[in-house]
């Protein structure tokens, strides 16, 4: 019988859950060890999202909330890349949802206490499905950095939040993309909760100068890797054979 299982997560290349430098984790991070178990159908089969949920402007954050096609403030960027699995296979139909602050570093959200202006033409919300080559792109504006309460006031580096579904609930990933060259990156406790340098660097979008120089926007490349799923074979032979 054919079965599938997810490649085990390497927690050394993920953030520490209990990381007091990020103050919000103190009363929220579980203390006990997680229980591991073999992948079952629940973790492997779906959900998969249909093309018909995606609207024409869903991946264009410069237009999907604008009134009378007025551009949001800030400079335009393209964020693009591919979604693949750990075996380098591109994942088609992966759902990527993003959210971000506006150019002034303000989110369109009641709980954002940052005293910066909202932009009436920008919500900071977008989504798309990857193509047959795993490719995605978003047209948006450069999010600003912003202050937030942590150990006193600290500043978040510029970033975009990413939520990704591949083909399996066990591939589910939520992360953030940072921007190459941002001096706030090295001060960020959320990013520094990842101990492994290479893993940390993989979250930094890389400026694509050739693409930026041919269009009126800056292009950043951010590739995403979801867990691999391997085939396993249960013994079908009878005893003694």
């Amino acid at each position: 019988m054919n079965a599938k299982s997810l490649i085990k997560r390497n927690y050394k290349k993920h953030p520490e859950i209990d990381f007091p430098d990020y103050k919000s984790s103190i009363f929220r991070a579980p203390k006990n060890r997680k229980i591991s178990f073999p992948s079952s159908n629940t973790e492997i089969i779906g959900p998969i999202f249909n093309k018909n949920i995606i609207g024409k402007l869903d991946n264009d954050l410069t237009l999907n909330f604008s009134r009378n096609k007025i551009s949001p403030l800030g400079h335009k960027i393209i964020v693009y890349g591919t979604v693949s699995d750990q075996f380098t296979n591109p994942i088609e139909g992966a759902l990527i949802e993003i959210w971000q602050a506006n150019a002034a570093g303000k989110y369109l959200h009641n709980n954002d206490e940052n005293p910066a202006p909202i932009d009436p033409n920008f919500a900071g919300c977008g989504r798309c499905l990857t193509s047959s080559t795993g490719y995605y792109e978003f047209l948006t504006i450069q999010p600003g950095p912003y202050p937030y309460p942590n150990r006193g006031i600290e500043w978040r580096p510029m970033h975009i939040h990413f939520s990704i579904f591949g083909k399996s609930f066990g591939q589910r990933l939520i992360t953030q993309m940072y921007f190459e060259g941002d001096p706030l990156i090295k001060l960020c406790p959320m990013l520094n909760s990842i101990g492994n340098e290479k893993a940390k660097n993989s979250l930094i979008g890389v400026l694509d100068t050739s693409r930026s120089n041919t269009q009126n926007l800056l292009a950043y490349k951010f590739d995403i890797v979801l867990r691999g799923i391997k085939q396993t074979y249960f013994e079908n032979r009878k005893e003694g054979l």
Binding site: F65, F87, E97, Y107, C125, I174, S202, L203
Partner: peptide, 30 residues
Amino acid sequence: AKLDETPFQTAGPFLHIGCMPNAVKINKIY
């Protein structure tokens, strides 16, 4: 496996904007 899985980061306090915008009154996109 040839590649490492992309690391997680917190979804933060404003995840509704990207995942459930209508629930936080961003009604005209989805």
